[in-house]
Amino acid sequence: MSYSRKVYARAASELERRRDKAERTQSMRRAEVYAKIPELISIDREIASAGAEVIRAIGMGENAQQFIEELAKKNLASQQRRKDILKENGYPEDYLDAEYTCKKCRDTGFIGGVMCDCYKALLRDTALAELNELSPSARSTFESFNINYYPDTVDPATGINPRSRMKEILDFCRDYAADFATDSPSLLLYGATGLGKTHLSLAIASEAVKKGYGVIYGSAQNLMSRLEKEHFSSGRNSEYEGSEQALLECDLLIIDDLGAEFSTQFTVAELYNIINTRIMSRLPVIISTNLTPDGLEQKYTQRITSRIIGNYISLYFCGKDIRQIKNTEQE
């Protein structure tokens, strides 16, 4: 799974915080108990010295195995004596053990070089929190998408029943999210403003993140702005370093409101590179836009438009501006 550098950094920082908290608490408890029960100091030294004794046994030849077995018995006896003394003095027998959040990896995130399940869960939670910071994804769910806002009569201009069409799109997006994988097809969500394009793209994003996939979401304006800052301040601003690589390699890229950004020769070239590279890498993109396919071709080059139209599944959103309807209901 591919997450942004920011997500990895935040998750690593959280693991470090958990370790520090557990080990600080352990140190405070040791100081407390050692002051009350000095005998435990020598017992803990015996337990700690066991590791060094095992290393010394390597040079003993045939006698090494017997020595290690005797050392293990001695060590277990010391640990039991430690527990007994703690209980006799009113402490839990594990009072001096570090209380790591994850006992398996001791809050390092890895077990024998393999990523621990706790780290995977932390990455998912961190990515979802980041998505919520950037967008109203917590409110943009499939369950909260209300098709009753769409007219249930055929539009004479298009011959389409908006409610029926949007029910089909909702079902499609729900199935898409349920079956999402890095080889899922790319989607083009287009139609007038306020019809739920962002809502459904965020609902898909949330489900993908919960499944452990790395998702990058952003408006076209913000994403292009980051790329410009990375390109024109290279080597001087680490905040934007790696932005292009992340957009090219993440499991799912969502470009919201394409066409509303300020276009330059640089941004058009970057957009082509992102779309083309991800097509070649077979990595999915979800694009939402208020522009029609013809409108996209007028704003961008034919090379960009042809790749989108030829490689993406197009979903046409129709109906009336839901935001205006909701505002009217609140008045």
Rank of each mutant, 00 (worst) to 15 (best):
G112I: 10
G112A: 11
A208V: 14
E53A: 15
I216N: 03
A12M: 13
E270N: 05
I85P: 11
A129F: 03
T305F: 01
M166H: 08
Y34W: 14
G218I: 13
A129P: 02
F180H: 07
V154I: 15
A48W: 04
S137I: 01
I308M: 04
E53Y: 06
S206L: 04
T289N: 06
V7F: 02
D321S: 07
T126P: 10
L202P: 05
E270L: 01
E261W: 03
R45Q: 14
I111K: 11
A31W: 01
S306A: 11
Y150P: 15
K83M: 15
A35H: 13
T101G: 09
P38V: 13
A129Q: 14
L227Y: 07
P284S: 03
C250N: 05
Y150D: 10
T158V: 11
R165P: 04
I275P: 06
R236Y: 14
L258H: 00
Q221S: 15
C318L: 01
D321H: 06
A11F: 02
K120R: 15
A138F: 06
R81T: 12
A129C: 03
G159E: 05
D294P: 00
Q79H: 05
A121T: 06
S314N: 06
E241L: 11
P136D: 13
L86T: 07
R29K: 14
R24C: 03
Y150V: 12
S140K: 14
E331V: 11
E241N: 11
I322Y: 00
G235Q: 09
R10D: 12
D20P: 00
I68F: 03
Y119W: 03
Y3L: 08
S186T: 09
S2N: 14
L71D: 12
D294E: 12
Y272N: 10
T141M: 11
N290I: 06
C173Q: 07
Q330E: 15
A35R: 15
N276T: 10
I204L: 10
F172L: 13
I37N: 08
K83P: 01
I204V: 15
I325S: 04
I55C: 02
G295I: 00
I43G: 01
S238H: 06
A260M: 09
P162W: 05
L134A: 08
V209G: 04
F317I: 09
D125N: 14
R236G: 13
E93Q: 14
V114Y: 12
P284E: 01
C250T: 13
A208N: 10
E69S: 03
Q26R: 15
A246K: 04
Y217K: 03
A77M: 06
L122N: 08
I313P: 00
E69Q: 09
L291H: 04
L96F: 02
P38F: 10
I41A: 07
G194L: 09
R82P: 05
S243Y: 09
Y95R: 07
T182H: 02
P293M: 00
C173I: 08
F266G: 08
T101I: 04
E130T: 03
Q245Y: 12
G259H: 02
Y190E: 14
R5P: 01
A11C: 03
I68P: 01
L170Q: 04
L227I: 08
S233Y: 11
V215H: 12
R278Q: 03
I254W: 10
